[in-house]
Every structure is written in structure tokens, then in C-alpha cells.
Amino acid sequence: MALALFSAFESGVIYAIMALGVYLSFRVLDFPDLTVDGSFVTGAAVAAVMILQGYNPFLASTVALLAGFVAGCLTGILHTKGGINPLLSGILMMIALYSINLRIMGKSNIPLLNQQTALDQVEAVWSNVAVLSSWGVVIFMLLVTLSFKLLLDWFLKTEVGLAVRATGNNPKMIRSFAAHTDWLIILGLGVSNAFVAFSGAFIAQLSSFADVGMGIGMIIIGLASVIIGEALFGSKTIGRTTLAVIGGAIVYRIVVSIALRIEFLDAGDMKLITAIIVIIALIVPKVMDDHKVRKMKKKRNAQRLANLQSLSEEKEEHHASS
């Protein structure tokens, strides 16, 4: 059990980078970008193929990041220049990427078991200096994820970043302040998918394989992380929200690993579990809000009734005395 939770935490930290990307497209740009399902695999595929060919795994991960950036930009171009609906342009890109990913990989699955991945290298370095060798990877990935978080925080506070946020918030307004929303959307989606692909590259290295189907439902996992994170840890400022998204990604992994320990569920049920978690995460806050409003109304109405009653009693007394 402890081991399962530990590895859930470990992969959660890596998936968090993907979740940060989804946060950027889904929340900041208000663009439900399904490219994620494809670009996640693109990242994994590029990294796996390059590592297999003997390139430095860190370089491979960086190239994966750039590949994701290009994929995201293409989705943005489909939407802004082609005038295609956001959901549809994402789906089109996702389908196109499926074939492209197969082309990159050459086959549907690349095992990395006997390869030196970035995580292996980190572990090797770490084990020289510390005793708890299994913590090396987690701490390294935590540092990487946190630097992505800080990078995103910084980006969203630059002049360009402010314009990107306004584009998702009120496009009419930002156009009237001399910003070209098309480019901002393309840039935002590019950065978002760069994050996603980078996360895919490290997940491939963590699980020692890249598979053409590993991205299915990734957007939902990203959404789950964002929604759970915001609900649990709050979203008052940008920095707080990005931290919450990381927390959400980790919590999501832990919830899934616990769910999988239930006897009759197996690994194939994971997507169903994810869908159910997202549905619950979407519905519960609404139900709670409704409940709160109704409770308040009830209280107010009771107060009003009491006021009326005391008023009429006063009147009766008045009548009686006169």
C-alpha cells in the first residue's frame, strides 16, 4: 500500500506538468483543447525514439517539449485562421497526431527498459550522495514541476501574459486595447501543449515505455486535476492556483491508486474511474452551492416570519390595551 501511494505521488508530480498545461488552455484561455490527448503521446514518442537512438535523455525531453509547442500552435492556427470551432480544431489535431505519433515511433509501442533515461541518470547521481535512493527521482521531479509552475506564474504576469489572460476573459476588450487575439491564442496553446508533451516525455521515461494509446483521456485527467486542485486548495491568485493544480494532479493519482485496490476493479477500469471522479468534481460544488443558498433562504424566511409574527402580536396587544 505504501509503495503504491509512493509511486502514485511520483507519477502525480510528473502529470502535474500536464495539468498546468491544461490549466493554461482550459482555465486561462477558456479553450477546451483536446490536442492534449495527442500531444502528450507526441512528447513521449519523440523522447523515446531519441533516447533509443542514443541521444541525451534531457535533450530528448527538450525536443519533446518543442514538438508539443508546434502541435499546440497548429491547433491555434486551425481555430483562429481557419475559423474552426475550438473543440473541433482540438479533435482534428488529436486525430492527426495519432498518425503522426505512429510515424514518429514506427510501431505502436517502444519499450525503454534497457535504456538510460533522465530519471535513471538522476537516480545514479543521487545514490552517490544520499541513502534514500528512491527519493531522488521524486525530489528531482518536484523541483522540475515547481520550476514549470514558477515559469507559468511569471509568464502570466508579463505584458504578453496579461494579454493572454484577458483574451480568455474578455476578447472584445483586449482587442480594443491593441492586442491581436489570434496570436495570443496560438501562443497560449503552444505553451500549454509544450507543457503537456514534456510531461508525456517524462511519463514515458518513468514507466519505461511509450505507447501510442497512452494519451487517451489525458484531457480528462488534466481537467480532473485542475478542478480537484481548485476545489481543495483554492484559486485566489495565479500562484495559488498553479500550486493547487499540482496538488490536484497528485491527489488525483492517489485517489486512482486507492480505487484500483478495490477487488473487482482492474487497470482497464481506470478511464471509467477518471470520468466518474470528474463528474463528481463537477457536480458536487454546484450541489453544495445550491444547498447553501437554500439554507440561507430558509433561515432568512424564518426570520421574516418571526418578524411578522412579533409585529402582529404587538398590534394585538395594542388593540387589547385600547
Binding site: 504576469k157 508579463t158 505584458e159 504578453v160 501574459g161 496579461l162 489572460r165 484577458a166 486595447f177 492586442a179
Partner: peptide, 20 residues
């Protein structure tokens, strides 16, 4: 302040420097 910064950048090229 972020809204004002967006308006402030109206007549210049937006950069990757801090908005506020």
C-alpha cells in the same frame, strides 16, 4: 492593476517584461 497594465500597453509592443 492588471487591467490598467493592459490599457497602459495599448500604444507599445507587448513584451515579456513584468506587466505591473
Amino acid at each position: 492593476e492588471e487591467n490598467l497594465s493592459i490599457a497602459y500597453c495599448r500604444s507599445k509592443r507587448r513584451t515579456f517584461k513584468k506587466g505591473v
